[in-house]
């Protein structure tokens, strides 16, 4: 019952070995935002170039485990060329993909017959179409390893924070 192949899918390892959009952008005009997980030391630095509400370029720096770094790489590929609204929607979808599975894991079949051990989630998860998630769906397996979920969500929370800062002009 290793489940290792669920965690370390080939596409994840590929993004870990060959991270996409690695590097920096000049600030300004780009916006720089850092995410940090003090517990394990994982670190993600994002450079967001936004023009007219579109994320025209993304660069990723930082260091950490395969899950945090591949998730950041996949995230950068997924949001580059998207509007801020589309990126925010993707953040929501990604985070609910993590939450839904968190629930199913604990409560067996989600819904009827739940024995009450279902984990609390921050927000009611939206239905996620795995097709629409593209290769991000490969990260689904992470939810079987609860301590690693924060590794996968680090870059997404950092992106959220960066978009907030851009929109409030911080």
């Amino acid at each position: 019952m290793s489940g290792l192949e669920d965690l370390y899918r080939e596409i994840i390892l590929d993004h870990y070995r060959s991270p996409r959009n690695r590097g920096e952008l000049p600030t300004p005009p780009a916006h720089r935002v850092e995410g940090y997980n003090p517990l394990c030391g994982d670190e993600v630095v994002l450079y967001l170039q936004v023009d007219d509400g579109m994320i025209t370029d993304v660069r990723v720096g930082g260091q950490g485990c395969s899950i945090s770094q591949s998730s950041a790489s996949m995230m950068s590929a997924a949001v580059k060329g998207r509007s801020i609204a589309q990126a925010r929607s993707l953040v929501r979808s990604f985070k609910s993909m993590m939450s839904i599975h968190e629930q199913r894991l604990d409560g067996g079949d989600a819904g009827a017959g739940s024995d009450g051990t279902t984990l609390e989630v921050e927000e009611a998860p939206e239905p996620v179409d795995p097709e629409a998630m593209g290769e991000l769906a490969a990260l689904q397996g992470v939810v079987k390893f609860p301590v690693r979920i924060k590794c996968a969500t680090l870059s997404w929370n950092t992106l959220s924070q960066g978009l907030d800062e851009l929109e409030t002009g911080a």
């Binding site: 394990c40 950490g64 485990c65 770094q69 390893f145």
Partner: peptide, 13 residues
């Protein structure tokens, strides 16, 4: 080439 958390995760299995 392997982060310590990944090493420990594989060892745990």
């Amino acid at each position: 080439g392997v982060h310590p958390h990944d090493v420990a995760q594989v060892l745990d299995t």
